[in-house]
Amino acid sequence: MPDPSTSGGLAAMRVDYDMPPFDVRDLAPTWHEQLVAWLAAAATAGLPEPNAMVLATADEAGVPSSRTVLCKGVDARGVVLYTNLTSAKSHDIRMTRVASATFPLYAMHRQVHVRGGVEEVSTAESDAYWATRPRGSQLGGWASAQSSVVASRLALEDAVVAADRRFPGEVPRPPHWGGWRIVPDRVEFWQGRHDRLHDRLRFERDGDDHSWRVRRLAP
């Protein structure tokens, strides 16, 4: 194994992908069915957190940020994540109303890239998902002013204790917590192949009629 502590070692790191051919005929009828199928395959294969995705946003000045979040919903409408609605990512989304997300299914030599506009999910959907969260996660949602500076770890833990005392029974969803849905105009499915001649198939929205077409991209 090359030594990653040296520039030469990093340059020498390389994996030869050996996946079978992946062509248009192999795709599901829709992008969301294909994404669900690949996520299911990743879960079956035992990949840790197969629903993890790298969410990229930009602020009003165009400065980008990225972070790993968990996808909590996929259907024909888009890809859903839940978060603090006053966080840095939420601020970016409110300013630009666009985002992208990449599912890095590295162990399967696959990745999926989603790009499009963003909308807030309904109150009912946010309430339904909030109810499935463990109590500790719910208390954390009240205690953490996500992305803000915190004085210390102890201050954060004290805020959790205070939230626990405030809500001895059911923990309601905070007004500052909810979901965002990326409504894609493009969804790319990437599968690694020999000699870096990867297969890249992209669903694209075709005009304003809400239909989709598929294009193959050069690797």
Rank of each mutant, 00 (worst) to 15 (best):
H113V: 11
T102C: 15
A76L: 02
S148G: 00
G73H: 05
A163M: 02
D59G: 06
Q111F: 05
L70F: 00
E49F: 14
Q138S: 05
R77E: 14
G116H: 07
V54K: 04
A58F: 05
S147H: 10
A155Y: 02
G78W: 01
G136Y: 07
D59T: 04
A155N: 01
S144A: 03
L154C: 00
V69T: 09
D92C: 09
A163N: 03
T83A: 13
N84D: 13
A101Q: 06
A151Q: 14
A124V: 08
R97F: 08
S100C: 07
V98T: 12
M95I: 01
G78L: 03
A151S: 14
R94F: 01
S90N: 01
V118N: 15
R166F: 04
S152M: 02
L105I: 06
A52T: 14
L55N: 11
Y82D: 04
H91S: 13
Y106P: 02
L85I: 00
P48W: 03
C71A: 14
E157N: 11
S66E: 07
Y106V: 09
N84P: 00
A143G: 03
V80N: 09
P134R: 01
E119I: 09
T96F: 00
A145M: 09
P134H: 03
F103Y: 14
S148K: 11
R67Q: 08
T132P: 03
G136K: 11
S66F: 07
R153D: 06
V79R: 08
R165F: 01
R165Q: 06
A155L: 05
G141I: 12
G169R: 06
E157R: 11
V79G: 05
W142T: 06
V118R: 13
V161Q: 10
N51T: 15
W130T: 07
D92V: 06
D158P: 07
S87I: 00
G136P: 11
G62C: 08
S137G: 13
A52W: 08
W130V: 11
L139G: 10
Y82C: 04
A99C: 09
A155C: 02
R97Y: 07
S100F: 02
R94S: 03
Y106D: 13
R77C: 04
R115L: 07
E157P: 04
S137T: 12
G73V: 07
N84V: 01
T57S: 13
P104N: 14
A101H: 10
K72R: 15
P104R: 15
Q138W: 06
E120D: 10
V98M: 01
H113I: 12
V54G: 10
W130Q: 08
R135P: 12
R110W: 01
H91I: 12
A163P: 04
S65F: 09
P104E: 12
A145P: 01
G62V: 09
V121L: 14
K89M: 09
G62Q: 07
E157F: 11
G140M: 07
A124Y: 00
V118E: 13
V160L: 00
P134S: 02
S100P: 01
F103T: 10
A58G: 13
S66C: 14
G169D: 11
E170L: 11
P168L: 00
V114Y: 12
H91L: 14
A58M: 12
G169V: 06
A99R: 04
Q138E: 10
R135E: 04
M53Y: 04
T123K: 11
A61S: 14
S144F: 02
